[in-house]
Amino acid sequence: MQWGEEGPPPLLVKIAPDLSKEDLEDIAAVALALRLDGLIISNTTISRPDVVKQNPVSAEVGGLSGKPLFNMSTHVLREMYTLTRGKIPLIGCGGINSGEDAYKKIRSGATLVQLYTGFAFGGPAIIPKIKAELSQCLERDGFKNILEAVGADCK
């Protein structure tokens, strides 16, 4: 493809939380080699965490998003931060409903967070709420800014 003077647009690849350790290692190696602009961790899951298995609709086909995905997606985020050695921007998503949730993603390696289900249920009012809570988390733990907290739980 031909691009204008500004070059190609940033390329972010979104990965699923259902990948094996070997898959994550391969993706990290390719992302580093190709110098991707970032990875979004993670998409919906086709698995059904124990917390939702008792719900009658949990047997429906399709991706699961929201709070039940939080731990799984945060684990994959932490793995990818370690595998990429913090050299690629990571966008943490999956179950973020509060500033504390966003903070856990940041401490696990996210430089940005993405809301979907939390925004769908919380509406625009969730944004200033998350920002205020996130600020409190940073202050509580002695960080001057978000960049200082990125990957803190992986070091």
Rank of each mutant, 00 (worst) to 15 (best):
M1S: 14
M1E: 06
M1L: 14
Q2S: 15
Q2E: 14
W3A: 14
G4F: 04
G7D: 02
P9R: 13
L11Q: 06
L12W: 14
K14P: 01
I15V: 15
I15W: 05
I15K: 04
D18C: 10
L19C: 13
S20P: 05
K21W: 01
K21P: 05
E22W: 03
D23K: 00
D23R: 02
E25Y: 00
A28L: 08
A31V: 08
L32W: 00
L36D: 11
G38L: 03
G38N: 09
G38C: 10
I40K: 04
I41N: 02
I41M: 15
S42A: 15
T44Y: 02
T45Q: 01
T45G: 06
I46C: 10
I46H: 12
V52S: 09
V52D: 09
N55H: 12
N55A: 14
V57Y: 11
E60C: 11
V61N: 09
V61M: 13
G62V: 11
G63V: 06
L64H: 01
L64I: 08
G66W: 01
G66I: 05
K67Q: 12
K67W: 08
P68L: 05
F70G: 03
S73M: 12
S73A: 15
T74K: 14
T82E: 14
I88Q: 03
P89D: 11
L90T: 07
I91G: 03
I91R: 08
G92H: 02
C93I: 13
G95V: 04
A102P: 06
K104P: 02
K105N: 09
I106S: 06
I106G: 09
S108M: 04
A110I: 07
T111P: 01
T111V: 10
V113H: 05
V113G: 08
V113F: 11
Q114K: 01
Q114M: 11
Q114E: 13
Y116R: 04
F119T: 07
A120Q: 11
G122H: 00
P124E: 08
P124C: 02
I126H: 10
I126W: 03
P128E: 05
K131M: 15
K131A: 15
E133P: 03
S135E: 15
S135Q: 14
F143D: 05
K144R: 13
K144D: 14
I146P: 00
I146E: 07
I146C: 11
A149W: 05
A149H: 09
A149Y: 04
A152F: 12
D153V: 00
C154R: 08
